[in-house]
């Protein structure tokens, strides 16, 4: 491990240790925050009991579904929009403002239309995540070097072969950025939707535990979600690093 990595680990450990100490000595009221060790043990008990399994499956399944739909549909939409320059120019202002407006505010509207089913969550999740994938796809296709088109013709490649063998790999780093964002947005939208209004799911569990003053359960659930989100981000980040290291190292 590098020196910087070591320092970072020490800093994080010190922060957690300080929180632990503050909770143990009563400096922080246990009705506000419980000690990190207690969160961990509460989570362990909760996971071992199996009572959380259904909600974990539901929430992570929803996040997976939302992310997959956003990536596939966003990529297809991106390719289509890239092929229609006029539509694209008309859409550009929408793309530029999309993440500046709180699209999430439509979640209650979707509930009014579809009721408290899975549909509103999936729709709000996809609406949040898909645009990042569309923008990333457009960006990636824009950055495919023009010379690759000429190389394709020198090798007498057809349209599909050009797309699969040259354009797709050339745009891949940008597409991966889109995938990372889609995962992140999918996560945020699904949890937020569950938290605010939903019949089940981990977000709902947290809200319930908060309402019941059940801090052990609440902090266990929060810890679980934060750990899962951090793990997913770490995996995506390391994949990204591996691609980047061999593809762009030293390239101007």
């Amino acid at each position: 491990m590098t020196r910087v990595g070591l320092i970072r680990l020490v800093v994080i450990a010190a922060l957690i240790g300080a929180l632990e100490l503050a909770c143990r000595t009563g400096l922080i009221d246990h009705r506000i925050i419980i000690a990190p060790s207690e969160m961990a043990s509460a989570l362990w008990t909760l996971l071992a009991s199996g009572s959380l399994d259904a909600d974990i499956a539901r929430t992570l399944g929803l996040i997976g579904l939302v992310t997959a739909l956003s990536i596939v549909l966003g990529f297809a939409a991106g390719v289509a929009i890239h092929a229609l320059p006029r539509l694209r120019e008309a859409l550009d202002p929408f793309f530029a403002t999309y993440y500046a407006v709180p699209v999430f505010i439509f979640y209650p509207v979707l509930i009014a239309i579809f009721g408290l089913t899975l549909m509103p969550i999936v729709l709000i999740g996809v609406s949040t995540a898909i645009v990042a994938m569309i923008i990333a796809t457009l960006n990636g296709l824009d950055r495919v070097p023009r010379v690759l088109g000429k190389v394709a013709r020198v090798h007498r490649l057809g349209r599909i072969a050009t797309a699969l063998q040259l354009q797709l790999p050339a745009a891949a780093p940008y597409l991966f950025t889109g995938i990372k964002l889609a995962v992140s947005y999918g996560f945020i939208a699904v949890i937020a939707a569950e938290f605010i209004l939903s019949p089940a799911g981990l977000g709902r569990d947290i809200a319930d535990a908060y309402a019941d003053f059940n801090n052990r359960r609440m902090y266990a659930l929060i810890l679980f979600l934060l750990v899962v989100a951090t793990l997913v981000n770490a995996v995506l980040h390391s994949l990204d690093m591996r691609f980047a290291a061999r593809r762009s190292g030293g390239r101007a």
């Binding site: 070097p145 023009r146 010379v147 690759l148 000429k150 190389v151 020198v154 040259l166 790999p169 050339a170 891949a172 593809r247 762009s248 390239r251």
Partner: peptide, 11 residues
Amino acid sequence: VVFQEDASFPW
């Protein structure tokens, strides 16, 4: 044909 731009495939 060899082009002026770098046309090697980085992947």
